[in-house]
Simulated assay, not measured.
Amino acid sequence: MIQRLPIRRVEMHPLAPAPQDEWPATLPPVRQVLQNGWELGPVTVLTGENGSGKSTLVEAIAIAYGLNPEGGSTGAMHTTRSTESNLSEHLQLVRAGGAPKKGFFLRAESMHGFYTYLQEVGFGGDRLHARSHGESFLDLVAEREHITGLWMLDEPESALSVSGCLALIGQLRDFVARGSQVILSTHSPILAAFPGADCYELGDWGMRRSEYDDLDLVRTWRGFLDSPERYLRHLD
């Protein structure tokens, strides 16, 4: 069976090359994508330190796909404060013929504003505001299970407990089984363990494919849980 992914490849737009000496192209992972392109599979997980470029890439791909930078589907029109880079203007998304064109963007940092937008347009944002952050987050995903296409998530673990992270993986696995594609940035070793995902680690070296056990995120968490005092003593 031929897999028709919403995005097969991300590359620099031939008619709108990005200045290589200006941010965000100065970030090694972004520069790597612009220079070499990036092939995507059904599930992609991005890890790396703060400032490595994870959210910058996720946000730019979402915008280039037609999704609202503050979250939502292709039809969401809300905005509070524009902070996104212009990277999306320099990206070309290579889509598979016959692939779904719908999508949804979830970013934890702007969910409160998104719920308010849903309330204003009569789509139940008041109910989402009334629940805990994690509960409303999972409810929102469940209520959009009919969307088959590109699902993009930027650090969703900030809203979720361990059980919430596991529940989210379960929801997203069902979506992928029905033909959706997932691109996820995270600091969570739980979400990074998404079965079958292509894991990438971002840093000063650029972007590199990595096995789960080799991710610095996973090794650091394991070291901390085995011996937290080894890490905490450096705070003195």
Rank of each mutant, 00 (worst) to 15 (best):
P189S: 08
D154L: 11
W151A: 10
I190S: 07
P195K: 09
C199G: 02
D154E: 15
E155W: 01
V182P: 02
D214A: 14
L184A: 03
W205Q: 06
D213Q: 14
T148Y: 06
D198Q: 15
L184M: 13
E211G: 15
A159Q: 12
V182H: 03
T148I: 15
S158Q: 15
D198F: 10
L184P: 05
R173Q: 13
V182G: 07
S161D: 14
S158R: 14
F194G: 04
A193R: 04
E145L: 08
G170H: 07
L150P: 12
F137A: 15
L202Q: 08
G206C: 09
R144E: 04
E145Y: 00
R208T: 10
L168M: 11
D204W: 04
Y212K: 10
L191C: 11
L138T: 12
E155A: 04
S180Q: 09
I190V: 15
T148E: 15
G196R: 07
F175W: 15
R144H: 15
I147C: 12
Y200W: 14
Y212S: 12
D204N: 11
S136E: 01
F137G: 04
S180F: 07
D213M: 12
L191V: 12
G170A: 06
V176A: 05
S180H: 07
S180G: 14
D198E: 14
Q171N: 02
V162Y: 13
C165S: 11
G203R: 06
V182A: 02
L168H: 01
F137I: 01
D174K: 15
R209F: 10
Q171S: 09
D204P: 06
G164I: 05
L184K: 07
L153H: 08
W205P: 00
S185I: 08
R209L: 11
S163E: 13
L160C: 06
A159N: 14
L140R: 01
C165I: 00
S136N: 02
W151F: 05
E201V: 05
S180L: 08
P189K: 06
R144S: 03
V176T: 09
P189A: 04
V182Y: 00
V162T: 13
P156M: 03
L166F: 02
E143W: 07
S136Q: 02
H187D: 05
L140H: 03
L160G: 08
E155C: 04
Y200A: 04
L138P: 11
S210H: 09
A177D: 11
L160Q: 05
C165L: 01
E135M: 14
S180W: 06
S188Y: 08
A197I: 07
T186H: 05
S136L: 01
D154Q: 13
Q181R: 03
I183F: 01
S185N: 13
S161R: 08
S180D: 07
